[in-house]
Design a protein around this nucleic acid. Structure first.
Length: 443
RNA sequence: CGGGGCGUAGCGCAGCCUGGUAGCGCAUCUGCUUUGGGAGCAGAGGGUCGUUGGUUCAAAUCCAGCCGCCCCGACCA
């Protein structure tokens, strides 16, 4: 993409309403524009990041054996009357009446609808297990939206649903999502920590929040530091094998958000040097809820004994749009965003220091063509701005690598490469610089 | 919803207390000079002062209602 054709309304000054760094940077870098409280338009730069994150989530869901589908944003109220949640959900649910006076709602989640879809066609234990997911916009009329896209009212969420014959089988589905989540967040450059969450009236130990550590996180978290260092199992995991040891290895270690924190247990179980207390952002939540919806909604399957019983279900959410903010919280500096390579809106920024200079334009065009060919998704700043402004913009939008080409260096056949994360700058011949960036060096 | 605050040009703000017909910086536009880390000079355009009503000879300014937005609390991906 050429910057002259792109739409990048960067701001020099910070809009007053943005209080946290990710919100400030998203506005300053021209990624989003607020249209109402908690409701954002995704401008081209932000949209590219959102799509990258969505794609990583999708790939890891697929790898874990989940099948993608797409459910609508609007749902009939009758479905929610079946589960009893239409009245129970309260004011957070946005209710709509259509021209025929039918009650609809803008979906805050999809348990009811997926249960309806499942029960319509699956009747036998032989068709289990099933894992279905979709990535769709949700609406929750939050009392107080805040922190930009971190807590919007309209937000993009991946929600998956599992269907199993019994609790033991449901645990295997749960484990798939548990491991898939670790891999998903790791690919985005995030250290995620699974923390045991409240299971409410269902009970049991099958609910975890996935928290990423960031100084500006909303909640205080306490955990064994070796859990953070353990990292993700990696995408080579055999999802059809036994995942329980990988899950146990992690759930055995202490990890709790402030509301679940037990200081006495923390001190008893974790050696002092490994006691980590930090700030965290919840980016995922997985939950086993058994027959909570399948029973009232009559999603029954015949078991081998011929008896029909409610299917055992779980749900698994990832806040896709929230992750954009969360990644910035974890990866930024004074100058702006510092995107991990996998989610960067563009792979490399090319700065033309003197647009209009024939030799410089030609060198930039050539580099742009080669890097495009190599799949590095370059953003070429071919505007007439001065060098300083271009550097500031490029740092603000946080592309991992910058290739700087100007007439002065070009006399010697040289260009400069800057690595955004480290600030490291090297001077190379233009050919070497392009070739090395094309090969994925500096990342 | 409880508490606090804010709405004046695209963005950041001053003016309000003590009413007299709107200003600053950045951005934008034009011209010239510049061009390697957010350029300089000269000029220009842009505002029903959130909205409705009230007080007044006169309201951005005082009073009331409404709307919108932000922050703290309870809730959540």
């Amino acid at each position: 993409m050429r910057l002259s054709r792109f739409f990048l309304p960067v701001l020099k000054e910070t809009p007053g309403e943005a209080k946290i760094v990710s919100h400030r940077l998203m506005l300053r870098a021209g990624m989003v524009r607020q249209e109402a409280a908690g409701i954002y338009a995704w401008l081209p730069l932000g949209f590219r990041v959102l799509k990258k994150i969505e794609q990583i989530v999708r790939e890891e869901q697929d790898r874990a054996g989940a099948a993608e589908m797409l459910m609508p944003t609007l749902q009939p109220a009758d479905l929610w009357r079946e589960s009893g949640r239409y009245d129970g959900y309260g004011k957070e649910m946005l209710r709509i009446i259509d021209r025929h006076e039918r009650d609809l709602l803008y979906g805050p989640t999809n348990e009811e609808m997926i249960t309806e879809i499942f029960r319509a066609s699956v009747k036998s234990y032989k068709d289990l297990p099933k894992l279905l997911y979709h990535i769709q916009w949700k609406f929750r009329d939050e009392i107080r939206p805040r922190f930009g896209v971190m807590r919007g009212r309209e937000f993009l969420m991946k929600d998956a649903y599992s269907f199993d014959v019994d609790e033991a089988a449901a645990r295997r589905s749960y484990n798939r999502m548990f491991i898939a989540y670790l891999n998903t967040f790791a690919r985005m450059g995030l250290k995620s920590v699974p923390m045991r969450a409240d299971t409410g009236p269902i009970g049991g130990d099958l609910s975890h929040e996935f928290i990423i550590l960031a100084e500006t996180g909303e909640s205080e978290v306490f955990c064994d530091s070796s859990l953070v260092e353990m990292g993700a199992p990696g995408v080579g995991v055999d999802f059809d094998g036994d995942l329980q040891p990988l899950v146990d290895q992690r759930t055995a270690l202490y990890a709790a958000t402030d509301e679940m924190h037990d200081a006495a247990r923390f001190e008893a179980e974790v050696p002092e040097e490994r006691r980590l207390s930090a700030r965290g952002i919840e980016v995922g939540h997985i939950f086993y809820f058994g027959e909570k919806y399948s029973d009232p909604m009559k999603a029954l399957v015949a078991h081998s004994d011929g008896q029909e019983r409610p299917v055992h279900m779980g749900s698994y959410g990832v806040g896709v749009s929230r992750l954009v903010g969360a990644i910035i919280e974890a990866h930024h500096d004074e100058a702006g965003c510092v995107w991990p390579q996998e989610v960067a809106p563009f792979g490399v920024g090319i700065i033309n220091l003197k647009a209009g200079d024939e030799a410089t334009d030609a060198a930039c065009a050539s580099a742009y063509a080669k890097l495009t060919e190599a799949g590095r998704e370059p953003l070429l700043d071919d505007t007439a701005e001065r060098g300083g402004a271009k550097f500031a913009t490029m740092d603000l939008i946080g592309l991992p690598v910058q290739l700087i080409i100007g007439p002065r260096g070009l006399k010697e056949g040289k260009a400069e490469v800057k690595v955004r994360a480290t600030g490291e700058r090297v001077e190379l011949s233009v050919e070497d610089a392009v070739a090395r960036i094309a090969d994925g060096a500096f990342l």
